[in-house]
Design a protein around this nucleic acid. Structure first.
Lengths: 217, 217
DNA sequence: TGTACATCAGTGAACGCGCGTTCACTGATGTAC
DNA sequence: TGTACATCAGTGAACGCGCGTTCACTGATGTAC
C-alpha cells in the first residue's frame, strides 16, 4: 500500500549526504530505546538503524556504546529531575513553614514515584545500575533548577531541619532512608509484585509510604 | 605446575560416560554464576562448561536457559528465606509480646539486608526481576520453615497486629510499605550510591531504616 | 566571484565473539528372558 | 547366571543471530587564495 517503491525496512533516506545532527538523532534514538526497554535496550546498532545511518557512523559522535548509554542516562536523570520539579511547582506556598517543608519532601517522593510509573524504562536507566555496567553514579544531569534528583532530595530534607520538623541529630544520611523507601516502592511497582497496580492505587500506596517516611524519619 | 598433562581449560574429565547428577551439577554451576554476577550471568553454555559437559547436554535436564534460570532463582529465594529465618532464630523469646512482635519484623528486615549484602548476586537473582526477563514472581521456594520470604514478612506483620502494635486498619498492604523500604536500601547498598559502605555502617543504617519503618507503619 | 583544496561525517565491508538451540549419533546402563 | 535388547544421558557438529568494533574509503562541505 505504499506509493513509492522504497521498502519499509529501508532507512528514512536522507536527502543530504551529511546527516545534520547525527549526535542528537542517536541520542534521541537511544532515549527511545531506553524508554521502551531500559538500559539494556540501548543498543548502538539499533540506534544507528533508527537514525538511518550505517552502524559505525555512531563512532563519529560516541566513543563506544557505553558512552552513548551514559548520555542517555544523563537525559533520563534530567527527565526525572524535571518530574520532581513539576510536582514541586504545584505546591501552595501559603502554609506554615513546617507544613511547607513537609510538603516539599513529599513532592520529591511523589515525583519520583510518578516518574517511575510513567517512564519505567527511563527510570531504570537513570536509577537501576545493575541492569547494565553503568558503573559509578557519575555527576548527574540536572533539571530546570540545575539540581539533580539526589540534590533535590537533600535540599528538601535540609529545609525539613530548618523548619524545625526534623531533629538535626537525625539529619545525617536521612536522605538515604527516604530514598530507600521510595526507590523500593518504585521497583516493586514497575516490575515487582505490584506491577499490576493501576495508577490511582499505586498513587495511594505511594502516599501511605510518604506518610510512613514522614512519621518515621 | 600441573603434574598431569591435562590442560587447565579442559573439563574435569569424568571417568564415567554418564555424569551421575548432571541436573544438580548444572544447577550448582548456575547458582555459582548467579552468585558472582546476578541473573544475567546465568549462562547455559557456561554452566555446562563448569559441569564438564557439552552445551546441549543441558537440554536433558532443562527445557531452556530460562528454565535453568528459574531453578536458580528458586534456590536464591530459598537461601534468602534461610537468611531471614536465621535472624529469627537468635531472638530472645522472653519479652513482652509487643516487643517480641516488633523484634520479629525487624529480624525480617535485618535478614533481608544481610542477605543482600552478603550475597548480592543471589539477592538480585531472587528479587530483581528487571535484570532478566524473569517474568512474574512465581511460587517462591521456601526456607526451612516452608515459607518464602514474602510469606515470612506477611506473617510477621500479622503478629504485629495480633500483639496490638499495629492498628488493624493500617494492616492492608503494610507488608509492601515495609518491603519497599528494605528493598530500596538493599539496592542502594549493593549497587547504588551506598556501594562503598562497609558492613557495620550498612548495618547501622539498616537499623535506622527499621526504626523508621517501625515508627512509621 | 571563482577555483583548489583540506577536512571530516558518513559508507561499505568485514572481523570475531558468545550465545541459545537443533540434529543425528553413540555407547553405558538396567531390564526381560 | 548369562545374554539380547531397549532406553536415554551425553556427544559432535553445526545453525543463525545480533552484537560491538575496526578498517580503508568517498564525497559533500566550507575555507583560503
Amino acid at each position: 500500500m505504499k506509493l513509492n517503491n522504497v521498502p519499509d525496512s529501508l532507512p528514512p533516506a536522507r536527502s543530504t549526504y551529511r546527516h545534520g545532527d547525527l549526535r542528537r538523532a542517536l541520542l534521541d534514538a537511544g532515549i527511545e530505546l531506553a524508554r521502551d526497554g531500559g538500559p539494556g535496550a540501548v543498543v548502538l546498532r539499533e540506534a544507528t538503524r533508527r537514525a538511518g545511518v550505517v552502524p559505525n557512523a555512531a563512532y563519529r559522535h560516541f566513543g563506544s556504546r557505553h558512552e552513548l548509554l551514559l548520555a542517555v542516562r544523563a537525559a533520563a536523570l534530567s527527565a526525572a529531575a524535571g518530574a520532581m520539579e513539576k510536582e514541586f511547582a504545584v505546591l501552595p506556598c501559603d502554609q506554615p513553614p513546617a507544613d511547607f517543608a513537609r510538603a516539599q519532601v513529599r513532592a520529591i517522593g511523589t515525583g519520583y514515584l510518578r516518574f517511575a510509573q510513567a517512564e519505567p524504562g527511563l527510570f531504570r536507566t537513570a536509577f537501576v545500575i545493575s541492569d547494565e555496567g553503568l558503573g559509578v553514579v557519575g555527576p548527574a544531569k540536572a533539571g530546570a533548577s540545575g539540581m539533580d534528583p539526589f540534590q533535590l532530595l537533600g535540599a528538601a530534607i535540609d529545609r525539613l531541619v530548618d523548619a524545625g520538623v526534623l531533629d538535626p541529630a537525625r539529619r545525617p544520611n536521612a536522605e538515604y532512608l527516604a530514598w530507600s523507601a521510595v526507590h523500593g516502592l518504585a521497583l516493586l511497582i514497575i516490575d515487582g509484585p505490584l506491577r499490576a497496580l493501576d495508577a490511582e492505587t499505586a498513587y495511594a500506596l505511594g502516599q501511605r509510604l510518604c506518610d510512613m517516611v514522614e512519621r518515621g524519619l
